[in-house]
């Protein structure tokens, strides 16, 4: 939404000492003041007439797969890293880490999201589901993936299974085209797409039988 960056100087030359991902501050090794402050204990300063401003290590509680899970995170910790590094929920995988590949897909309040571009702190009070909570029985999506060999190395699979589950919850009767489009937010490198599509259609059928 309103995404602005009001500091002077503007981004451009001022920021280009940080080459992408190199993690390197070429010009200076000193962290910015807020970064240092954030490393102190948790702070919550009240802005006049505004919401609380949070920084440092914050205790948060997330609703994951029907359980309340608590841990400490910084505001910058993504939902994905919080699940994987702090809560031992390692089903969602970190692959591109930039919201392109879908391996980190989780369901928040019924909708799939990329957990690598979601901040954990913003997920408090929302219902988070990962594939570890899915039914593994004969009418479940994981079963269909298994039977149709919709996985090889399996590292993209959690994302596909999650995207498929959420798609079928919203559209229990997808056409082949709808199923393809519904799973277009996920990338597989081994090349399991044929099995994935078969599994999605089979899972839709199996879910109907159950209903």
């Amino acid at each position: 939404m309103a995404e602005h960056d009001p500091t002077k100087p503007r981004p451009g030359t001022s920021r280009r000492d940080f080459l992408r991902g190199s993690g390197l501050a070429a010009a200076t090794a000193v962290l910015t003041a807020p970064a240092v402050a954030a490393l102190d204990e948790a702070k919550a300063a009240a802005v006049e007439d505004g919401p609380k401003v949070l920084s440092g290590e914050l205790p948060i509680t997330l609703q994951v797969n029907g359980h309340e899970m608590s841990c400490k995170v910084e505001p910058r910790s993504t939902l994905l890293d919080t699940l994987r590094h702090r809560l031992d929920v390692t089903g969602p995988k970190r692959v591109c880490d930039r919201g392109s590949c879908g391996a980190c897909t989780v369901i928040v309040d019924g909708d799939t999201v990329y957990s690598c571009t979601t901040l954990a702190v913003s997920c408090q009070g929302h219902e988070i589901r990962t594939l570890e909570s899915f039914d593994t029985g004969a009418t479940g999506v994981p079963h269909a993936f298994h039977q149709h060999d919709a996985l090889m190395c399996g590292y993209c699979t959690p994302g596909f299974v999650t995207a498929c589950k959420a798609m079928l919850e919203k559209n229990p009767n997808p056409t082949i085209e709808e199923a393809k489009r519904g799973l277009d937010g996920n990338i597989c490198r081994c090349g399991t797409y044929v099995g994935v599509l078969e599994a999605a259609m089979a899972a839709a059928k199996a879910m109907k039988k159950e209903a």
Partner: peptide, 14 residues
């Protein structure tokens, strides 16, 4: 595959 369900349910640890 024998580890397919463990992979498809997110339960196996990489």
């Amino acid at each position: 595959r024998i580890d397919g369900l463990a992979k498809a349910s997110g339960k196996i640890k990489y």
